[in-house]
Computed example of a mutant assay.
Amino acid sequence: MGSLIYGNSTSPILIDDRALAHLKVVIAIKLRRQESFTLSWVHKDGEAPGRSTIWLHPSIPLRFVFDETEPPTLNPDWIAALSHTLSSTGGVCLVDEIIDPTSEK
């Protein structure tokens, strides 16, 4: 389980390493362009029910922490799906991975 640490928060946002690696790509593209946006996700089982949203801004420190030492192979379809959520007014939404049953991982 990876962590997203935003600003001076002492409470990391826990996100699966694989999902965090894909989010990192999408977030980095937006922040590199100096664009602010929101990131939303549905709470996982074991957490309080509901969803959360944070406002991401290029001037606020952001740290990605992964449990795994090796980065996963990235799924371009999942990156595209995450990027597609940016075209809505809701910002980036952590959507489930799109798996092509004909591709090998």
Rank of each mutant, 00 (worst) to 15 (best):
S59P: 06
L31I: 07
T102R: 11
T38I: 02
T102A: 10
I29G: 14
T69M: 11
K105N: 14
I98H: 05
T73Q: 09
Y6V: 13
P58D: 00
R51Q: 14
R63E: 11
I27S: 02
G46Q: 02
E70Y: 13
H22D: 03
N75F: 06
I27H: 06
R63S: 10
E35D: 10
K44G: 11
W78H: 15
F37P: 03
W55L: 15
K44M: 13
V25L: 03
P72M: 05
A19K: 03
P12S: 01
A81M: 07
D67R: 09
P12K: 07
V42C: 09
I15P: 06
P76Y: 03
R51G: 15
P12C: 08
G2W: 08
Q34C: 12
T85F: 05
S36H: 12
S59H: 12
I5V: 11
H84Q: 15
G50Y: 05
P72L: 06
H57R: 14
P49M: 01
K24M: 15
G50D: 02
L56W: 09
P76I: 01
H57V: 14
P12H: 04
I79F: 00
T73H: 10
I13M: 02
R51Y: 13
H84M: 10
S40K: 06
I79D: 09
P49H: 01
S83L: 11
F66I: 04
F37C: 03
E35I: 08
S103W: 14
C93G: 09
P72R: 03
Y6W: 13
S36G: 10
D67G: 08
I60L: 10
I79V: 15
E35A: 05
I60V: 15
H22V: 01
T85S: 06
D100C: 00
T38H: 08
K44E: 15
V25S: 05
T85G: 01
M1L: 09
A48N: 12
K105V: 14
D77Q: 15
P101N: 01
W78A: 00
D16G: 00
A19W: 06
G2T: 04
Q34H: 13
T10S: 13
L4F: 00
G91Q: 02
F66W: 14
K24T: 08
L56E: 10
N75D: 07
S3R: 13
L31Y: 05
L94H: 04
H84D: 13
L82V: 03
L94P: 05
